[in-house]
């Protein structure tokens, strides 16, 4: 069964240079972020970092850094794989990289990080619905415009977008199934959902739009089993939507799915406006 997950976009609040160091050789790669740059999701941010490190050429051919957001339970956590050498991360080598650090779930600089180490905390503005999205359906399509009609009926005008490239507004109805088969994790999807929305609005740099991914991961056997078959959630068969919650009152009330074990499976529904076309 596929997994669906939500991730906040990230707008870099202040310029920063993040230094990644290969400990055995001392080689470094600096990743410079410009204030105001928007990344579509935590996946997107991590992919950019990975691309910067791998593209630097500073590490030699035997060293490939894989920075990936891993799915665990109802949250996501960053894992760095180096192929062997230990590594260090200085988040504020120049400027202030603390927002990036917090957004990715780390709490401080990393020194002597082991190959395959995960960050100290979960990505705060991410949420995993382990049993996928059973519905992401378009419910309405409209085009923003202003319209004026004189009361005497003698004149009218309307104003549309200035650019013909502007997107239509597309309303979608989303239904996620979230849960955990472990008794000790019962209701944890509710806790994570609350924390996700809070972080979406509270975390520095986070905010709408957020990305909804539909990934072909196997929820029961985990990411590693899927990846052993050559899968990765960045591959093209993952669907992504960029969404904003619809309306100014966001009400999320997960419903128990009848017939399931008590508090092990919940249905979460909400309306959202699509920010761009799905890809």
């Amino acid at each position: 069964m596929p997994v669906a997950y939500l991730q906040s976009s990230f707008r870099v609040p202040s310029a920063a240079t993040i230094r990644f160091t290969r400990d055995d050789s001392g080689a470094t790669v600096d990743w410079s972020l410009t204030a105001g740059t928007v990344y579509k999701s935590a996946d997107h941010l991590a992919a950019q970092w990975k691309s910067t490190i791998q593209g630097s050429g500073s590490f030699g051919l035997d060293f490939a850094v894989d920075v990936t957001i891993r799915i665990a339970a109802s949250y996501q956590i960053v894992k760095i794989t180096t192929g062997g050498p230990a590594f260090s991360v200085d988040w504020s080598h120049a400027g202030d990289g603390s927002a990036v650090r917090d957004f990715l779930g780390e709490s401080g600089n990393i020194s002597g990080g082991a190959d395959g180490a995960t960050f100290s905390g979960a990505v705060p503005a991410a949420y995993v619905a382990r049993y996928g999205a059973t519905r992401v359906s378009r419910s309405a399509t409209s085009r923003d415009r202003g319209q004026f009609l004189a009361l005497d009926g003698t004149s009218s005008w309307s104003q549309h977008h200035a650019s013909p490239d502007d997107h239509d507004t597309v309303r979608v109805e989303v239904e996620l199934w979230a849960g955990d088969t472990a008794a000790t994790n019962a209701r944890s999807p509710l806790l994570q959902l609350e924390q996700f929305v809070d972080a979406l609005f509270d975390e520095a740099g986070a905010g709408e739009p957020f990305a909804l991914y539909l990934s072909p991961h196997d929820a029961e056997h985990g990411v590693s089993a899927y990846q052993a078959l050559g899968g990765d959630h960045a591959v093209a068969d993952t669907d992504r939507w960029d969404l904003r919650f619809a309306g100014s009152a966001l009400r999320l009330v997960p419903a128990r799915v009848s017939g399931s074990q008590p508090d092990r499976l919940f249905r979460i529904t909400f309306s959202a406006d699509v920010d761009g076309a799905a890809w």
Partner: peptide, 22 residues
């Protein structure tokens, strides 16, 4: 059936070209 939920009140501004803040 719905033991717990939340309602967030959001102030939203939507600008041109899909830009906006909430």
């Amino acid at each position: 059936d719905e033991p717990l939920g939340w309602e967030w009140t959001i102030k939203r501004h939507r600008g041109d070209h899909q830009q906006g803040v909430a």
